[in-house]
Design a protein around this nucleic acid. Structure first.
Lengths: 160, 160
DNA sequence: TATTGTTATACTCTATAACTATA
DNA sequence: TATAGTTATAGAGTATAACAATA
């Protein structure tokens, strides 16, 4: 059973560029640009999800489960969602043949979730599509600047 | 009438860091990092919205209308949403005293939307809270690197 | 006729609370 | 008793389609 809805319309503008007070401190600028980059990237991911008849959350799940098998609760924690929310999410993905449930062998209460072969293929296709979709942005920078940007963002995101 | 729900639970992990094939081309790395940065930023924005009893969309609307008055359809285009979706969105915001509707003086079919004084105050508070929330990330970089990052992202996002 | 906005309807995502089964 | 997952219920966000009012 295939869903036919295609829940996305692309925004004309992502976010207001900035307050741009004349002599605003430059710290404010970076914050704005980060937000704008986030909205732009999310719009791409959203479009990608819609084109594949997925919600953004389902897209994330596909990415997360690409190389792991997780319990329902672990998956919920990864996503920052309640366990009850997972039930419906996994139900729908299972109905579409993308994921499957199986009892956890070590804990009779727990249920493992994992991608089917079809789900895995989709996840890999999505990875490639995302790269293609974002390439028009990244290729505006020359290779050395791409590396620089990557390095700066990695430091920004470093968890310690 | 104040909503009491607080629709957010923070994720333990934002997104799988990478496929990390041993000798993957470095282009793949930047794409992954951009996605991760987007999810991290969106998680912050989402939390901020939830703490103020707003959805992410309402948070965006607050930002967009901070210095403009728009017709329903213009607002829909900004957000990438259908006009029918706006009706409910504006209804709810209006009920909370954050926005108001008024007939457009130039076109009898059109309805303008704008923030109330209370909505404006909220929008400004949100701006400050977002800066505070994201500061722990940005301050990991020294000032010159912050400027560099901002410049690189600006080039990435430049629309031409 | 074409455009703007609303209404009706339906589905997904999300949460809280109560429940069942297992530890 | 505590934990894992499901079910029931409810509200928000989203879309499509049909409609009323205005251009």
């Amino acid at each position: 059973m295939v869903r036919t809805t295609n829940y996305v319309k692309l925004p004309r503008a992502m976010l207001k560029p900035s307050l741009s007070k004349k002599s605003a401190p430059s710290k404010l600028g970076l914050v704005d640009v980060l937000a704008q980059a986030a909205f732009t990237t999310m719009a791409i991911l959203n479009k990608l999800a819609a084109e594949n008849d997925l919600s953004l959350t389902q897209l994330r799940v596909a990415g997360i489960l690409r190389d792991r098998r997780l319990r329902m609760l672990e998956l919920a924690d990864y996503l920052g969602l309640e366990k009850s929310t997972m039930t419906g999410l996994v139900d729908r993905a299972e109905k579409r043949g993308l994921m499957r449930r199986a009892p956890n062998p070590d804990d009779g209460r727990a249920i493992d979730v994992f991608l089917t072969k079809e789900g895995l293929k989709l996840a890999e296709r999505l990875q490639g599509q995302f790269q293609d979709a974002i390439a028009p942005l990244t290729t505006k920078l020359k290779a050395s600047d791409q590396n620089l940007l990557q390095e700066l963002l990695e430091r920004l995101l470093a968890s310690d």
